[in-house]
Nucleic acid binder design. Sequence first.
DNA 1: TTGTACGCGTTATCAT
DNA 2: ATGATAACGCGTACAA
Lengths: 338, 338
Amino acid sequence: MVTIRDVARQAGVAPITVSRVINQAAGVNAATRARVQQVIDEMNYVPNTLAKSLRSRQSRLLALMLSDITNPFWTTVARGVEDAASEQGFHVILCNTDEDPAKEATYLNLLLQRRVDGIIIAPTTNDLQRLAALKRQQTACVLIDRRVAGFKADVVYGDSGEGARRLVAHLIELGHRAIALINGPATISPAGDREAGYRAALTAGGLPVDDTLILSGDFKQTSGYQLARQLLAREPRPTAIFAANNFIAVGVLQALSEAGLRVPDDLSLVCIDDVPHASAIDPFLTVAAQPAYEMGATAARLLMERLAAQRNLRPRTVVLPPELIIRRSSGPVGQSIA
Amino acid sequence: MVTIRDVARQAGVAPITVSRVINQAAGVNAATRARVQQVIDEMNYVPNTLAKSLRSRQSRLLALMLSDITNPFWTTVARGVEDAASEQGFHVILCNTDEDPAKEATYLNLLLQRRVDGIIIAPTTNDLQRLAALKRQQTACVLIDRRVAGFKADVVYGDSGEGARRLVAHLIELGHRAIALINGPATISPAGDREAGYRAALTAGGLPVDDTLILSGDFKQTSGYQLARQLLAREPRPTAIFAANNFIAVGVLQALSEAGLRVPDDLSLVCIDDVPHASAIDPFLTVAAQPAYEMGATAARLLMERLAAQRNLRPRTVVLPPELIIRRSSGPVGQSIA
DNA sequence: TTGTACGCGTTATCAT
DNA sequence: ATGATAACGCGTACAA
């Protein structure tokens, strides 16, 4: 493998001069620069980022730790992160935690060893302790989608509380009174936000909150499916379901389909996070779409800004608004409502 | 930051001994090992992978270059790669090329500088020259989903030619005779395979091939939408459309929806690659699903196996079979067929 | 403008 | 079983 020394020898200059040419640093005679550049090309010299990083103490490597790259929401976040990062020559390591704290810990460990410059993470739990290693190693960090009380870091999340409020208000406006909530795990902030928004909307609409209509599982299709089955077995059954994310909504649809029920004729369904291509496939679903791409890009930019800053920046919080997408006015409410 | 020397000094041993403890190498007295380990824990020592990689000449870093992380097919591939890699302590850098050769070249360059151990790539074109740098730098490589004639590397792809054949045979069995193909760019091998499968199925079914029914764009929704509109304007219009991938199919659905046409009543639609959650949303679509997760995991394993091998392995090719998923027998053929 | 000397943190090699 | 030395490839600090 060709090294900077080989190039230097061949060009008849010192290694540092080659270094200056590579990094487009000032202080190199134009003629010298041209000659060195030519040798670089001729020899197919490829600078070694590893050595450079070791020396400069920055890897230009970010990590994105999320719960499920299969979910279009996270996919879009990842794209936002990746685009923003590559604009500034950063690379992104992708890590799937699967909501598993053990996996999360293992990854975190390895990433710190690798000296990534920063980590964008959607923590599996709101446990402050789990992120302590980041502080110890002084690795920059941005929380995405999920807040962790007491953890000093930049935070980027969608205002899903507001999204929840508007979705439920929409249902109330359509005449629904028995609106169920199928939520994710209470240990992460968006679940709390969404339940709060749900409660606020009911109260604002003059409706009582029926705690038995609030179910909690995780943010996956299976969970949505199982909890929906529980709801559908009730007598009378709710006339509308608010699914706390897109995968839960898909699970609900699966349960409805099995029960021979249709949306919106038999039951209304709304959720947080868009279901991509839903409009092309079956445009019934009203959703509060979070600006996933923006969330990712914003997180990456905050992180890189922090890395570039000379002094320590104060932790910043960015809350992005959701977009309500009403694909079809949910039509008449089903029969179980008087 | 604590270094291996700091630990060594504190534990009263040489750095190399600490190294042996970290790497669980043989040749360290149990008592010494325990003492060193204790110091490591006390001092919160985090080994520096950068330095390790520089010295050992391996980064335990893979890269995955694909065209669109937004497509569920690629998402699933990515997950397979990531899972297989992390099993062996490798990290994965994710790169979106957007089918843009310039982006691809830029990424490739940066990845080589970073000394990634290997690259899994779905090349934007079948241009051998574009991958020459990989050879020069002797960086291991696995082609995924797309072959490049003359490029000596492991290849993993789905047998989408067979998938195409079976899908079209299915349509013929249902009585269709005017079956259109909306394909991706001819410059990449899966597009060629799918057209070949399409032609083979028609011929085997005793039907003539009408070249005007074969349209080619790219593998994105917009392309599928536009080409579908062209097809629908024809008189008589085809009774079935074979979309060469899932995003094209979604574009077709969009066009159909705008035209007030329904699947399968007015027109049949089949495609390569699954549309996730389609079954829960509207189970009409017959697809030939490629084993995306397996493809990713296989590619990663081939790559890591090659890295671990002492000697040079011959290039290997793995072709994985598609799975035909018939979500609902496509029902009676529309009226435009006699 | 260009160059010399050294260090970043680790491991390979060889020695004890 | 343990250690001394050098080297991986580059950039900083300082010198010329």
